[in-house]
């Protein structure tokens, strides 16, 4: 593999990893802060993509569609937390798994009713529809670079919010001792609602920005969910930094194994996970 090809593949891997990070960050945030294992997280990614499809076609503008879809996702997150998740805080993980798996079925059925089962596509917004020629054969689409940049910005934003703001401090405090935070007069319920809705919105935003790059199809959420769990487990459940590092590792390993070890490529990310767990049983950055 010559150096240019290596760099292309590295770009592919990083780009895939960044997108995985965006999806996985919401999952790990909700688990870390609230102790809730949300298996329907992939469904939120799907919801984002379908909403983007719908609003791009009704408003004609990707930007407007993205904003509307993200707001709807945020509201959906609040609704789910207030009506369903709120009943789970004092229960065990099995109950959480049952409820959130149930949600997967509900969202799949809703998707099928509202949009049917044909694969749908969203066109890349014209202002991002360019490509940068890298060699005379390959070019790199501007939109994909934009998505990578967006993932990085969101990642930095999350890092700063959690580590540098009062809200972040409360989140971190709630993470280590819910009851104590409550005793100190903080409305922990409101905090939880906010965190859960943010988690949902992050997955939905990943779905929205992915929509022009992928095919919007039934079941698209389940596929990313598995990769996300690998990312979260490698990074350490609940760690945003871990999700970032884990996602890049998964993206890069998956890309290079696809080319260099095609026979093993479907296993490689799981082997990576197993190796990480052997060395660090709680993941790279677990608390």
């Amino acid at each position: 593999m010559d150096i240019t090809l290596f760099l292309f593949q590295l770009m592919n891997g990083v780009q895939y990893g960044l997108l995985l990070f965006l999806i996985a960050s919401g999952l790990t945030l909700v688990f870390g802060v609230m102790g809730i294992l949300n298996l329907a997280h992939g469904s939120m990614y799907m919801v984002g993509a379908y909403l983007a499809y719908y609003f791009v076609n009704t408003t004609g503008s990707f930007g407007v569609a993205a904003v509307i879809s993200a707001i709807i996702a945020l509201l959906l997150g609040i609704l789910i937390e207030r009506t369903l998740i709120i009943r789970l805080y004092r229960r065990n993980h099995l109950d959480q798994v049952l409820l959130t798996i149930g949600l997967i079925f509900v969202f799949n059925a809703l998707q099928s009713l509202l949009w049917g089962n044909d694969p749908l596509g969203v066109t890349v917004p014209t202002w991002l529809d360019g490509a940068i020629p890298l060699t005379d054969m390959i070019e790199y689409p501007v939109y994909r670079l934009f998505v990578s940049l967006l993932c990085i910005l969101i990642g930095i934003g999350m890092y700063l919010t959690i580590n540098r703001t009062r809200l972040g401090m409360l989140i971190r405090a709630g993470e280590s001792n819910r009851d104590m935070v409550e005793c100190l007069g903080v409305n922990i319920n409101r905090l939880y609602t906010l965190v859960f809705a943010t988690g949902v919105a992050l997955a939905a935003i990943a779905g929205i920005v992915s929509a022009p790059m992928v095919s919007v199809v039934p079941g698209m959420g389940e596929h990313v969910l598995i990769a996300c769990f690998v990312v979260v487990v490698i990074g350490g459940m609940g760690s945003i930094k871990g999700a970032f590092v884990g996602a890049l590792m998964v993206g890069i390993v998956d890309t290079f194994s696809s080319i260099m070890l095609p026979q093993l490529s479907s296993m490689m990310i799981y082997i990576l996970m197993a190796v990480v767990l052997l060395v660090k049983p709680k993941g790279l950055f677990a608390h």
């Binding site: 090809l5 292309f8 593949q9 592919n12 891997g13 780009q15 895939y16 060699t135 054969m137 390959i138 992928v214 095919s215 596929h223 998956d254 890309t255 290079f256 696809s258 080319i259």
Partner: peptide
Amino acid sequence: TEFQPYITDIA
């Protein structure tokens, strides 16, 4: 459906 690495390889 992560086809990008393979397509890069084809190129």
